[in-house]
Amino acid sequence: MNDFLSFVVEEQDLIIRAALQHMYISLLAVTIGSLIAIPTGIWLTRNKSIANYILGVTGVVQTIPSLVLLGMALIIFGLGTTPALIVLSLYSILPILRNTYTGISEVDDMYIEAAKGMGMTGVQILLQVEIPLALSVIIAGVRISLVYIISWATLAALIGAGGLGDLIWTGLASYDKNMIFAGAIPASILALVVGTVIGIIQKLATPKGLRK
């Protein structure tokens, strides 16, 4: 334990830099995924006849092992952050897409009818009624996605994306347990902290009348 603490003190700059890079990659991937998934989820609520097909196709991506997708991205795009972001963004889409579709689909019809009775347009109903009521469910999807991506981003170091995965894989290659722990422990802490923070945001986004 003392050896590990000494290692952390000596290599704190390296660990902090790797953690910040890891968080940057994860947040950017989930942001890209959200920009794709949320509009698509909203669109699917207006086209429910094809929703199951789109969700099914998106779900197939989740069944492909991450190393396979990373290997394909490496072959097509080469080493670096770009192929890692492409793969991580693809993985981030399903939870957000599914929760966006489910959240908006499950808004009670009485709210929609009341809004129509007030003369609201379809866009106004979406922005002022459906999205606010579904927001906590959408945020839950983002939370699930981000926690997963923080974990999966450790594998992205294999194709040159950097982050905490660099420390883990370097430690494995050199049989340096301190290096492995220096990558694995911060990654776990990041996932826990992010999950907790977004959970608080999710609770705050839940309308007071719907809170348990």
Rank of each mutant, 00 (worst) to 15 (best):
E106D: 13
V57F: 13
G199P: 08
D13C: 00
I180V: 15
I150W: 14
S6T: 11
V147R: 09
L70E: 02
F77E: 04
I139L: 15
S188W: 11
E10I: 01
I149W: 11
D108N: 11
S151Y: 03
L85F: 04
M120S: 11
I168R: 04
I75H: 02
A157I: 08
T31F: 15
N47W: 05
G78N: 03
W43P: 02
Y111M: 00
Y53K: 09
L190M: 15
P83C: 06
A84W: 00
Y175M: 09
E130V: 05
T81Y: 04
V137H: 02
V60G: 02
I75N: 10
D3W: 06
L5V: 10
S49R: 15
K48M: 08
I125T: 14
G56L: 08
I15R: 13
L146V: 11
I104F: 04
I42F: 07
L127V: 05
V194N: 07
A115W: 05
I32D: 00
R17G: 06
K177V: 13
R98L: 13
V147W: 05
W169Q: 14
I200M: 10
L204M: 14
T45P: 10
Q124P: 08
M23F: 15
G103P: 04
I168H: 10
I144M: 10
V129N: 06
L94Y: 14
G78K: 00
G141L: 10
P132T: 03
I168K: 08
V142C: 11
K208N: 08
M118A: 12
W152A: 14
A73C: 06
P39Y: 13
A114V: 03
F77M: 02
G71W: 06
V9G: 10
E106Y: 08
I112K: 12
G122I: 02
G41L: 04
V194P: 07
I54D: 08
N47P: 00
I189Q: 11
S188K: 01
T196L: 15
I159L: 01
F4M: 05
I144H: 00
I15A: 11
I149G: 04
G59N: 15
K48G: 10
L167K: 13
Y53G: 09
L35A: 14
Y175L: 12
M118I: 07
I54A: 05
I104W: 04
T196E: 13
V142N: 01
I76A: 12
A153V: 04
T82K: 09
Y175P: 00
D13Y: 02
A18H: 06
I104M: 01
I144R: 02
T154R: 05
K208H: 11
V60W: 10
R98N: 09
G78R: 00
R46W: 05
S174T: 14
L192F: 15
V129D: 12
I185D: 03
I50R: 13
A29P: 03
G160R: 01
V8Y: 05
